[in-house]
Design a protein around this nucleic acid. Structure first.
Length: 711
RNA sequence: GGGCCCGUAGCUCAGUUGGUUAGAGCAGGGGACUCAUAAUCCCUUUGUCGGCGGUUCGAGUCCGUCCGGGCCUACCA
């Protein structure tokens, strides 16, 4: 065997502003599997992580719950660690970016940048919330677009006309924190002139060794083709973070200290275990592997390598970037109950299932991966229960008294074949192509079950003269099972423990899959894995929905000072920053979900589909009762000029014709005419509501003209 | 508008440096078994490999183009 590799592995630091959900878990499970695999192979490997604890959002959360930031992040960290443990994610050290080790390292990196002459001071004018005493990041300001006057736009760009601008250009700006009108205020900021590292970053990122090709292309296309912009690395007080020693009153931006937290957490690991930090972070013989989501790519592939380079630390061997989780083909959503917290999942469903399912979907690419409920159930039950566990469950009890044969019997080469497959499976794990690894392993299970089938141990059992034969058959079956469990052990640690109890043997090395187990006793077989029931998943989803409803109700109660909360980050691990975090203000209204239940959303359409519908502003020039009709009014609509349409609208119980004449409505102008009992209807009026008296027509703001199209 | 990724059986996907009649699992259909968690085993149906054009003796695999899906980013690439 080759000499053991020395490998340091990290997952992105989860932001200490919200709970872990199943989207986060894609990454932590992916990483945990990789780490367990490396350890199983005999490599020296440590898994390092920590909570990311600094920044404005944390400050706001602490304020809202009326505790100190330290109290807040401590509690969140405990929740995070509890949830990770629940999913059998095993860190060698789990720290916090808010620790003395991290501060010291931040200073060291800072000094290196100063020595290299890469820091520059400049004055920046920003909007400032006087009431809160805080500078406002773009996403914390709302106002009207300076170009098209669209209302309620954020401070960076307009989602109506697409214009980009600075927050200071917004008309009638308000702070989303307090609702007050922000003022302009200047402050000094410190910038890193990262352009000076351009050549290094091009070489490093384009070498083909460290990044997936699509990521390298992305960096080239978006950043490296032009001079790199200076990086604003400081934030003026108040800010929850580390104060910059030689610029008191200013703090390092959270993205400075967050990745350095990887090193700080390693340092804690070394202190605890008597190791040497430099042997991990300043040693070209140590591999460094970062696992991250695609949302934080450029922090880890541009800024972070630059920081390591300047401070003279080892550069990452590989940055493994994964996509987001979708559920049922759609983004996770609170409304659908698919925004499932780790905690909620664990109340209803075995974590083993999710670990296996993610493993079966992960392929080492940046593609998003989908959790489909039906597929989830089918895969887990068919593969794990039906194929793998079944092997033990159908044979173990036959040899409970006999134990395993002392000599491994002739099995027609099955075990040897499984042993030979080990290298291909290992390669698949190594390259994060777990999907392939799972397929290769299941092929082995597909060979093993027919073996049992054709040798019919249940018949031999009844014949006292053929007990040796029975023992041999079961020895083979149990060994094939054991081999499969070893290969699956990075994914399913719990199943390994159960197998260890069954066989009275520690399974902790990949090599064990090459040598059959013989002559040892077999314990009483206990159920290893329940079948996954769809109804358990449904219960979990229902509960998630209820949690969200309750949360919305709470938010409505405490709407006096709407908090800026950012727990709704996309599935990927949200190490976060002011710009990347979308502080989705949980809106204060608690509208019922009934209308959507009554009439679920229609299938998605393309833009072109939408454009087929020609909606027009029209003026009601005449409105009359239709005597024999219960629901209909006969309207004459003008599209301007001589263009008029006769439309029968089912709004009789809701509107008095006299009130309608003269007002503007929205009509579907290109709908095929329809012959009705009372005449021809040449279009429809746009309105909402269940019907009867509850019909509400669309109104349009002053200034719109009949005939104008609605876009 | 630009960039990247993707488009193979009903579903999830494999298809190695282009090479013979395109595969697996699941689902579906038929049969067998009863040790096992209504698990297992055997047999079995299905594909204009998104469309078109090109290179080649030969293309799912290379090139061009178009259509469709996703993501990223914008009057910069």
């Amino acid at each position: 065997m080759s000499t053991p590799r020395r490998i340091l592995v990290t997952s992105a630091l989860p932001y200490a502003n919200g709970p872990i959900h199943i989207g986060h878990l894609v990454e932590y499970i992916q990483t945990d599997i990789w780490v367990r695999f490396q350890k199983l192979r005999g490599n020296e490997c440590i898994y390092i992580c920590a909570d990311d604890t600094h920044g404005t959002a944390i400050m706001m959360s602490a304020q809202r719950t009326q505790c100190t930031e330290e109290q807040w992040i401590k509690q969140i960290q405990q929740e995070h660690m509890r949830d990770f443990a629940g999913f059998q994610i095993e860190f060698d050290n789990y720290g916090s970016t808010n620790c003395p080790e991290n501060y010291a390292l931040c200073k060291e990196f800072w000094q290196a940048f100063k020595d290299a002459g890469l820091i520059e001071q400049r004055e920046v004018t920003q909007l400032f919330d006087d009431q809160q005493g805080i500078f406002l990041a773009d996403r914390f300001v709302q106002g009207s677009c300076p170009h098209c006057d669209a209302e309620d736009q954020y401070g960076d760009s307009c989602d109506q006309c697409g214009a980009t601008y600075s927050a200071r250009e917004l008309k009638n700006p308000t702070s989303t924190l307090t609702g007050s009108v922000p003022i302009e205020k200047s402050a000094d900021h410190l910038f890193i002139m990262i352009e000076q590292l351009h050549e290094f970053l091009s070489d490093w990122s384009q070498s083909g060794e460290h990044l997936q090709t699509e990521i390298a292309n992305y960096l080239q296309g978006h950043f490296l083709h032009e001079p790199l912009r200076d990086w604003d690395i400081s934030r003026p007080a108040p800010y929850f973070g580390f104060e910059i020693p030689d610029h008191l009153g200013h703090f390092w931006f959270v993205w400075w200290d967050a990745p350095i937290g990887y090193i700080a957490s390693t340092q804690q690991y070394c202190a605890r275990t008597g190791g040497d930090l430099n042997s991990w972070w300043k040693n070209i013989d140590t591999e460094i592997h970062h696992f991250i989501g695609k949302d934080i790519t450029y922090f880890h592939t541009l800024f972070w390598p630059a920081m390591l380079k300047v401070a003279d630390y080892t550069l990452p061997t590989k940055v493994h970037i994964h996509g987001f989780l979708t559920v049922g083909g759609k983004k996770m959503s609170k409304r659908d109950g698919t925004f499932i917290k780790a905690e909620t999942y664990l109340k209803h469903v075995d974590p083993t299932y999710l670990r296996y399912f993610y493993a079966s979907k992960l392929n080492g690419k940046v593609d998003d991966l989908d959790l489909n409920i039906e597929e989830f159930v089918a895969k887990v039950n068919s593969d794990l229960v039906g194929k793998v566990v079944n092997l033990a469950s159908r044979t173990a009890k036959f040899v409970q008294e006999l134990g395993l044969a002392t000599k491994y019997p002739d099995d027609g080469g099955l075990f040897a074949q499984g042993a030979a497959a080990g290298e291909a499976i290992a390669e698949a794990y190594e390259s994060c192509n777990y999907n392939l690894a799972m397929r290769l392993i299941m092929e082995l299970a597909d060979e093993a079950n027919p073996y049992v089938e054709t040798h019919e141990p249940w018949k031999l059992r009844k014949d006292p003269a053929r007990q040796d034969e029975l023992q041999n058959i079961c020895t083979v079956a149990i060994n094939l099972f054991r081999q499969i469990i070893i290969y699956l052990s990075p994914v399913l640690p719990e199943l390994v423990e159960k197998t260890e109890s069954l066989l009275g043997e520690q399974l902790n090395s990949w090599e064990q899959a090459k040598i059959p187990l013989t002559g040892s006793p077999v314990a009483k077989f206990n159920h290893m894995l329940k079948r996954l029931e769809k109804k358990d998943l449904q219960t979990m989803i229902d509960e998630t929905r209820e949690e969200n409803d309750a949360q919305a109700a709470d938010a409505a109660k405490s709407m006096a000072n709407p908090p800026a909360e950012s727990t709704e980050n996309q599935p990927a691990p949200p190490e976060t920053d002011d710009a990347a975090t979308e502080p989705t203000v949980d809106h204060p209204y608690s509208d019922s979900d009934q209308p959507l239940k009554d009439e679920p959303l229609a299938d998605e359409i393309s833009f072109d589909d939408f454009m087929k519908v020609d909606l027009r502003v029209a003026r009601v020039v005449k409105a009359e009762h239709v005597e024999e009709a219960n629901k209909l009014l006969k309207l004459t609509l003008s599209l301007g000029g001589d263009e008029t349409r006769q439309v029968f609208a089912g709004i009789k119980q809701a509107y008095d014709p006299a009130d309608l004449e003269g007002r503007l409505v929205i009509m579907v102008a290109n709908l095929a005419a329809r012959k009705m009992r009372f005449g021809l209807s040449e279009g429809m009026i746009a309105a909402a509501g269940p019907g009867g008296e509850e019909v509400f027509m669309l109104a349009i703001d002053e200034g719109a003209l009949p005939g104008q199209r609605v876009h």
